[in-house]
Design a binder for these strands. Structure first.
Length: 256
DNA sequence: ATGACGCCTTCCAGGCGA
């Protein structure tokens, strides 16, 4: 079984690119973020033709998450309770697996009012997961977390020390997800790899290796036992047949 | 030093992303 997460930066702009990737990688279960599309505008037919059922928690213009699955899934929860004003949370059940995808708030800067809101959102997420996820059972929490959990996850941790994505406040929120019982699958298999999942579109950041690792597949121990590989699909951060890529790369894991 | 690219929108300049 192949699972994945990907911030696609706009479904309308990325649909062909996403379909290209689905055909090339054949994932079974995918969390996508930033679809920026309302539920009633989601192109279900196109994904059904590619063999995927889509479950969406969409929003016009901003945010929006969805799950694409080859096998039938059922909705457990759409929207983070108490924070339904932005579409950032979707929990589905795929057989025995609880699969949750999130698009965490960005926060902008430490001075911006969005920063304390980001921390509050994280606290609400952790509270909700602690109540609703049994860490002894198979579960995956994936998505764009908008945090570099450790210096190794940033192209220049010294330059950005104490700035957005690099603060102790954000890192402690990320750690709380691990304390609930989730394991960072990529880091677990690649202890020392300085591998990123996002690169700014501007100034040739991708080619200069100036990226961040902010997209994660977090899995409970029963899932981790089945993990055979975890990779960041940086080939899909490149232009593909003249199609423009997202600024994020997909993260993929193969489970036994 | 600044902006840099690409997304979106009651529509095309301006906000936002990370």
């Amino acid at each position: 079984m192949r699972i994945a997460t990907w911030n696609i930066n706009g479904l309308t702009a990325r649909q062909s690119f996403l379909e290209h990737w689905l055909a090339a990688r054949s994932p079974d279960l995918v969390g996508i973020q930033e679809i920026k599309t309302a539920d009633d505008k989601f192109p279900h037919m196109a994904f059904a033709a590619a063999g995927y059922q889509a479950v969406t928690h969409g929003q016009k213009g901003w945010n929006g998450v969805a799950v694409l699955s080859r096998e039938r899934v059922e909705i457990v929860q759409r929207g983070l309770p108490g924070h339904e004003e932005s579409a950032r949370f979707l929990h589905v059940r795929a057989g025995e697996l609880d699969f949750i995808t999130v698009y965490c708030p960005n926060g902008k800067t430490l001075q911006h009012e969005d920063f304390p809101r980001k921390l509050e959102w994280y606290d609400a997420l952790a509270d909700h997961l602690a109540r609703t996820v049994d860490p002894s059972k198979p579960a995956v929490l994936c998505g764009d977390m908008n945090v570099c959990p450790a210096p190794l996850d940033s192209w220049n941790d010294a330059l950005f020390a104490g700035q957005i994505f690099h603060t102790d406040a954000e890192r402690s929120r990320f750690r709380r997800l691990l304390e609930i019982g989730f394991v960072d699958a990529f880091r677990s298999l690649h202890t020392d790899a300085r591998t990123f999942s996002w690169w700014d579109y501007r100034a040739g950041a991708f080619h200069k290796g100036q990226g961040l690792r902010i997209d994660f597949l977090l899995a409970t121990p029963t899932v981790m036992k089945r993990v055979r590989s975890v990779e960041i699909d940086r080939d899909y951060r490149k232009k593909k047949d003249a199609l423009v890529p997202s600024d994020h790369a997909p993260v993929l894991a193969d489970l036994e």
